[in-house]
Design a protein around this nucleic acid. Structure first.
Lengths: 174, 174
DNA sequence: AAAGATTGAATAATCAATCTTT
DNA sequence: AAAGATTGATTATTCAATCTTT
């Protein structure tokens, strides 16, 4: 018979509070929060732009005709369709994006980069990349960054099959 | 003299829109969003609990006396101190957490796990872990999960030195 | 009836200001 | 005056409902 380890009053049994997978998940969430915070602060200070705006403008800049259907854009970001509608409202108010009608399906709408939006994202990308390289090349030197990317791709493919399939066609993110 | 690649009307120069680091960052954010979504849905369905509640309760369950100062708890989550105040308000309304006074410093307050809160997190951890293992052991088999954890720790340490230092003392996340 | 997009209502996150204690 | 915690005001996000077009 195995003896109880902890018999002190009021102690609860520890089901699996020390499973290393909890540590992995915790590290993942902490790393994400830290990275988003640092990147956002830099982008905000240097380019007066949130990380969300950067991501939306970048998607548009990489799309044919610098435009994308609202629903496609929503699928490529972490926003719901209503969330994207509001985000595009704000981008349109700032003059960085313009809505365009869709001829082939009049229910649809495009979000299109304006000249001003193109200027802003073109200016922001090198600033963003400089900081990201400064941070990551130093933190994950040698081939570690490539390994990290490879592991992330496996994870993303398992979690978001839609994005994985789309990347085979158009390579929005690997 | 290097010739221009694209001389079509209206074409903008592409500064570095294809830098592989943009792909890495995109994959990281997509993987995070996907993982958080999947874990949250499962936890919500099986344990009627958000991922945020899970994380707060888990931190408390792993702390001596099942309690932690509000400011320490905020530092260990992705919330601001005011955000944590509100989160603890909700947890307290649900009866999972109780505020306790701090004798040594009467400005301070503890958030402490209630018996009900302990039951709920004890029940949720195995459920959460089962899903996480099912997902990750299959996606990153062999030693890939350990490699991934190692890379995340390096990244977290670079981005959040405070958490890295704390982990040397108390091991909240590796 | 279903798809694309938007809107209203409800919930939650942050910053700055405030209050208490050190 | 500074630190710990909370509150008010603002902004942003989501779900469900709505409107138009297919």
């Amino acid at each position: 018979m195995a003896p109880d380890i902890d018999t002190s009053a009021g102690a609860r049994p520890a089901p699996s509070l020390d499973d290393p997978l909890l540590t992995t998940l915790g590290l993942f969430f902490e790393a994400h929060a830290g990275l988003a915070l640092v990147l956002e602060r830099h982008l905000e200070a240097e380019c007066a732009m949130s990380l969300q705006w950067f991501e939306v403008l970048l998607r548009l800049a990489r799309s044919p005709g610098n435009r994308l259907r609202m629903s496609d854009l929503a699928a490529q970001t972490t926003l719901s369709t209503s969330g994207l509608t509001r985000a595009v409202d704000r981008l349109e108010s700032a003059g960085l994006v313009r809505r365009e009608a869709c001829d082939s399906d009049r229910r649809g709408a495009f979000a299109a980069l304006t000249a001003s939006g193109a200027e802003r994202i073109d200016a922001a990308v090198p600033v963003h990349l400089a900081q990201a390289h400064d941070l990551l090349d130093r933190t994950l030197p040698g081939d570690r960054l490539e390994t990290f990317t490879d592991l992330l791709r496996h994870l993303r493919d398992a979690l978001n099959p839609a994005a994985a399939e789309a990347s085979v066609i158009a390579d929005p993110d690997g």
